[in-house]
Design a binder for these strands. Sequence first.
DNA 1: CGTGTGGTTGAAGTGCGTCAAACTGGGTGG
DNA 2: CCACCCAGTTTGACGCACTTCAACCACACG
Lengths: 212, 212
Amino acid sequence: MTLAFAKFDPPPAQTLVPAGVSIRRAPGEEIFAQGETVDTVYQLLSGAVRTYRLLGDGRRHVCDFHVPGDVLGLEAGGEHACSAEGMADVILLAIPVATLRRLSAHDPLLGQRLLSIASNGLQRSQNHAAMLARLGAVERVAAFLIDFAQRFDADDEFDLPMTRQDIADYLGLTIHTVSRTLSHLQDQGLIDVRASRRVRLRRQDELLGLCA
Amino acid sequence: MTLAFAKFDPPPAQTLVPAGVSIRRAPGEEIFAQGETVDTVYQLLSGAVRTYRLLGDGRRHVCDFHVPGDVLGLEAGGEHACSAEGMADVILLAIPVATLRRLSAHDPLLGQRLLSIASNGLQRSQNHAAMLARLGAVERVAAFLIDFAQRFDADDEFDLPMTRQDIADYLGLTIHTVSRTLSHLQDQGLIDVRASRRVRLRRQDELLGLCA
DNA sequence: CGTGTGGTTGAAGTGCGTCAAACTGGGTGG
DNA sequence: CCACCCAGTTTGACGCACTTCAACCACACG
């Protein structure tokens, strides 16, 4: 658990609770699945995770991408509304909900912390919904790049841990449109796609201007 | 406050806390506004409320419609991410966040209640996002009608408290598409639009089948 | 009876999806 | 070392669903 921290830089801001065990997952491996009973909550220590839902007819919707420090699986009903998978090698802190409930019964601060995590998730989801409802393809891709850069790296050049299909399913587009839009932004000189997974943001201010 | 309950049937399941004062708002009147500091949380006692965001260029996105019993304004950061307005005459219970914080410090059950409210909101928002990302106009309108009927009324005929523009801004469509889609569903015999605001669901099962 | 707000409907335009094909880089085996 | 393969990606041509533009309609209110 502390070992997991040691080799990464920077370490997650803080662990949710001084409890739980760290687990490891390979890329593409399932962490929890849509419909499963929620008995464990996870905090991502390193790597990157996607959460997604499968619709009735097989269409996929990526709910969010998660970075170290994020808490996953803190959900309302008794069962998970999303599945979660690593997009790279992933280390997580697994915390039984029973433990969480027990601790928060005596620690109002933890309760507030959990509330704040859920509220933050709500806010992210509402941003996401607003984007899907009202922005065009260029605006969506620009918003995605800006958001990703802020959350993962804060640098202006970085590697994307997800495929074009993941991005498309997150943005409500097809891989074709995502690919075309990235090419388009490159033609405009706003970004460099140095390799399919490696991107440099050249005019972050202009990208931001595109996000409405 | 109890007076507010008395004249409505059924009354909201339960009040959040035995505190706060009831306030009244006219249709279209603001309850709180995007960007304002969160100093009060509201529980809707009667009427119907829309929460919405304005994007940079004036486009509007309706985050959700709220029914009696719903809690509004429980948000993460220090400020509201949405504005809230009544769509009809509205009665709300206004609870200072300071009160809420004080009570929840000594009542872990309240903390869990708040967490569950926020998680439910998150789940609704994720459903909403998935719909916006992946469903077509007919599916969106069908999903909206089914959801609304379940939450407001549970009957198969009801009045919509919102305008076509509200629905369009909620579904990520234009009023034209919403109107056309309703006409289309009526032509199929799935619904009756008895007046512009009054709808009857004739084949709820088939509507449900459209929602993927 | 005139005016205004909200809703419906038609015709034309367009942004993204679909279909189809070519490309790229990494891995494997001959 | 090269031939091959394969998943992921890019790009083009075309079609369609939804938007846009433009009327017209319905009902409430002064």
